[in-house]
């Protein structure tokens, strides 16, 4: 295709042409291409602007009707058309938080394993496997969670947890209720497994920015591996690690399919993490096509706007932090 373009451009240029004419043709083509590419770059900005504007436009009826109460109300009743986002916000934040609590230490562990402990021949294959797993569509994690993990937890783990914490103040409530299998806890575990490859591969990349000479110097004065990780690598990479965590958090907050299968879709804030709940994205995925009535649809779009605003700030923070460690590396 590119040959055709070249010949088309040069066809208009022949030996008899003056230098000025050729230059003019070249300039014309260059300006056109410059404007074309620039407008595409601007289009990317317009895209983001369009997303925000359309979400605000779509959610306006709901926000006008419920005001700020939309954020705090717990009712979600399509019949009486009373909608509140509190249970969905709660579910989104809690599942993501628990998922990070599981995935972050494990991801760091895997990254340490890959950069320090793993035999050299295994590093590349294991690293590649982890990266490939990061690309598996979330719906796969979702159906595994529903068919395999949820029944397993229901039969073998949750009854034990409920029995173990019975009588313990506070924790008794957190691990209470019948073992449904599906619920906040199961969704969090699925999310954790899903973001684990992301956390590990980012932390590994960040760990690799540490100049070897720093680590060698520490080993040279007799530091143990743990001390090198704790005193040299961790302080050096701190900003990048936080950035990686935020990126994973952004992914977890917006994740839809992995959660929708196992969250239970109950619009209430349950004190027990074993109980069913819902998240913003799961609510939209489950109810959007069935929503009748402008206010119902608008409330769902308002949920989407909320999710977008939350993830936007988390992702923006993560990018700024990761950019800082890249600059550090370049120095």
């Amino acid at each position: 295709m590119s040959e055709a373009v070249l010949s088309e451009q040069t066809k208009r240029v022949s030996y008899g042409d003056t230098r000025a004419k050729v230059l003019k043709l070249f300039n014309l083509g260059d300006t056109a291409f410059h404007i074309l590419t620039k407008s595409c770059a601007v289009a990317v900005l317009v895209l983001l602007g369009g997303v925000i504007v359309s979400l605000i436009h779509g959610s306006a009826p709901a926000l006008r009707e419920f005001g700020l109460g939309f954020l705090t109300s717990q009712s979600w009743n399509p019949v009486t058309e009373k909608f509140g986002a509190a249970p969905a916000i709660y579910g989104t934040l809690v599942t993501s938080f628990i998922a990070l609590l599981i995935a972050a230490p494990m991801g760091f562990g895997i990254a340490v394993f890959l950069t320090e402990l793993c035999p050299y021949q295994l590093r590349r294959p294991v690293g590649i496997a982890v990266e490939l797993l990061a690309g598996i569509p979330s719906i796969i994690y979702g159906i595994w969670g529903m068919f395999v993990l949820a029944p397993f937890l229901q039969e073998h783990v949750q009854p034990g947890l409920i029995a173990a914490f019975a009588g313990v103040p506070w924790l008794e409530n957190v691990f209470s209720g019948p073992p449904y299998g599906i619920g906040i806890a199961t969704a969090s575990i699925i999310l954790a497994i899903m973001i684990l490859p992301l956390v590990s591969s980012i932390s590994r990349d960040v760990f690799e920015t540490v100049p070897p000479v720093l680590k060698e110097a520490a080993y040279g004065v007799g530091c143990t591996r743990w001390e090198v990780m704790r005193r040299i690598v961790a302080p050096y990479t701190g900003v990048g690690l936080v950035g990686g965590i935020m990126l994973a958090l952004g992914r977890a907050l917006g994740e839809t399919m992995a959660v929708t299968f196992v969250i239970g879709n109950a619009h209430k804030i349950s004190p027990s993490i074993l109980g069913p709940g819902t998240t913003i994205s799961a609510t939209i995925a489950n109810e959007f096509t069935e929503a009748d009535g402008a206010l119902y649809t608008s409330s769902l779009i308002a949920l989407g706007l909320l999710l977008f605003v939350i993830t936007f700030f988390v992702l923006a923070a993560s990018r700024l932090l990761l950019a800082r460690i890249q600059r550090q590396e370049g120095r």
Binding site: G50, G58, L247, G250, G254, F288, I301, T311
Partner: peptide
């Protein structure tokens, strides 16, 4: 940011 934005929001748009 768009790269990691929730795809369900793009769907709503």
């Amino acid at each position: 940011i768009l790269l990691s934005a929730p795809s369900i929001v793009i769907g709503l748009f």
